[in-house]
């Protein structure tokens, strides 16, 4: 099919070239040649291929004089008109892309500073956290705070990817920072507060899922609420068993009034908690999805390591499963008590 098209283009080119060379006034039979030029450019012919076509057409064209050669080159030049404009446009696009790239780099660096990502020192738990955006900007957010009395862990996933999600993430960060310092607020209370902020401030097609957990080392109680967030895992050392950290609640921003249920469990030494964003459970493996059991199996393989190592190893394994490129922003937190 393609060769047939090539053949017909060559024969048309040859005819027009012969016609042009034979003419004395050096005017192109405009309509046909313009039509051919447009056709060639429309099918994306490269300058070097056009030159190749010209060379092919020259064969047997009966060029025996310098002036005929000059006329053939003139013909080629006319056929090539438009390339310089395309080249200029291409350069302009490249410059523009470079500028966007720089702006994205700055935004991405700024987001990294905002996200902070520090894991606090903690005498009663070993904590590891890792977060990687699928592109340059992330829609994931996490925050781990040890205020001396309690350990507060937040993990959130903003619907969507890229820049809009990243901007929304900044808003969540500031909403959380403006919560009263040392707020003794229960997880359910904090989530309903944040829900109102998000509902008022985000576009109707955006929402945020969030898990908010608080551990009190004095009582050994871990209490949490969830706003539509992918359930994490709880590992019971006594039973040597993983359980879903099941919690239900509307995602932030879905409805103006939302109430969040609070869940509590007693944590014993050796127990672990794993929190993740849906990037982790939406990862595809050969067009299929990775099941939660597979993630548990990965955690089990490395759970003897320090928390920071567990998150690194699990992340590496999951990335390997999807050929080292993330489909979605990805955040994973491990807490070993």
């Amino acid at each position: 099919m393609e060769t047939q098209e090539d053949e017909s283009q060559l024969s048309e080119y040859r005819t027009l070239l012969a016609h042009y060379i034979s003419q004395k006034d050096q005017k192109l039979p405009t309509e046909e040649s313009e039509h051919l030029r447009r056709q060639l450019h429309a099918c994306g012919i490269l300058p070097e291929d056009l030159l190749g076509l010209h060379i092919e057409a020259l064969k047997g064209a009966g060029i025996f004089s310098e002036s005929a050669m000059m006329r053939s080159l003139n013909f080629l030049m006319k056929m090539m008109s438009g390339y310089s404009k395309a080249y200029r446009e291409h350069q302009e696009l490249k410059d523009w892309q470079k500028q966007l790239d720089t702006e994205l780099d700055i935004a991405s660096a700024l987001q990294k500073t905002l996200l902070d990502g520090k894991v606090p020192a903690c005498s009663f738990a070993d904590i590891g956290a890792i977060s990687e955006p699928a592109k340059r900007m992330s829609g994931d957010y996490y925050r781990i705070v040890n205020d001396g009395k309690r350990l507060v862990v937040t993990i959130a996933d903003i619907v969507g990817k890229g820049i809009p999600a990243a901007m929304c993430m900044s808003m969540i960060k500031y909403a959380m920072d403006s919560l009263p310092e040392n707020s003794q607020g229960a997880p359910s209370y904090i989530l309903s507060l944040l829900n109102r902020v998000v509902e008022r401030n985000v576009d109707t097609n955006m929402f945020i899922t969030m898990f908010y957990g608080v551990y009190d080392p004095e009582t050994g109680i871990f209490s949490n609420s969830s706003a539509g967030h992918e359930p994490g895992f709880y590992y019971s050392a006594r039973e040597d068993r993983f359980m879903d950290l099941e919690a239900r609640g509307l995602s932030l921003g879905l409805a103006r009034e939302a109430e969040y249920k609070e869940y509590a469990r007693r944590i014993y030494s050796g127990d672990m908690i794993f929190l993740l964003t849906d990037g982790v459970t939406e990862i595809r493996k050969d067009h299929d999805f990775i099941e939660r059991e597979q993630i548990v199996a990965l955690i089990r393989r490395w759970m003897h390591l320090p928390a920071a190592e567990i998150v690194k190893q699990v992340m590496r394994a999951l990335k390997k499963m999807q050929d080292f490129s993330l489909q979605d922003d990805f955040t994973f937190i491990a807490i070993k008590f």
């Binding site: 990817k161 109707t204 939406e282």
Partner: peptide
């Protein structure tokens, strides 16, 4: 469906 699709459904639901 990814989470962006859920966003579209949320917008449709609200509307």
């Amino acid at each position: 469906m990814d989470s962006t699709a859920l966003g579209v459904i949320v917008a449709a639901l609200k509307s």
